[in-house]
């Protein structure tokens, strides 16, 4: 079965959605991602949706869900690279994704996550990983 890869980058998880996201795939992603957050103890999740050109209310809900689940597991979610059409669609659908952080691109998203990590925690985490 098709799967969306979840990459571990330092303290964060990086998900790049490069294919059309159908409902089943989105649900699998939601489950895999939360498992990964639990397994790796990541403090941040970065979802790159710059290749996503079509979005529906279900997708909006899944993104909201991932953010909500991550936040109760003490990980922040940043959605990056949203296309203008996707942003307008989500707003028109009444899904402002208020719990989700956003950034223009992966680089800025990383910087945002980086800036939200308390410095002391960073060190402790690095030790744990090593």
């Amino acid at each position: 079965m098709e799967k969306i890869p979840i990459l571990k980058m330092g303290k964060f998880l990086l998900v790049t959605i490069q294919v059309d996201l159908y409902d089943r795939l989105a649900l699998t992603l939601e489950e895999d991602l939360i498992q990964m957050v639990f397994k790796t103890g990541s403090k941040g999740v970065l979802i790159d949706i710059s290749a996503l050109s079509i979005v529906d209310s279900f997708m909006g809900k899944i993104i909201g869900n991932i953010a909500g689940m991550s936040s109760i597991m003490d990980a922040e979610t940043v959605v990056v690279g949203m296309q203008p059409a996707v942003a307008i669609t989500l707003i028109e659908l009444g899904l402002p994704l208020s719990g989700v952080h956003t950034a223009l691109n992966v680089e800025k998203g990383m910087a945002l996550l980086e800036s939200r990590m308390p410095p002391s925690l960073d060190d402790a985490n690095d030790d744990d990983v090593d």
């Binding site: 203008p84 942003a87 028109e92 956003t102 691109n105 998203g109």
Partner: peptide, 12 residues
């Protein structure tokens, strides 16, 4: 409000 929210979704 819609415009502001859409901008926020884009990460700005």
């Amino acid at each position: 409000i819609k415009t502001v929210n859409a901008t926020r979704l884009m990460g700005a």
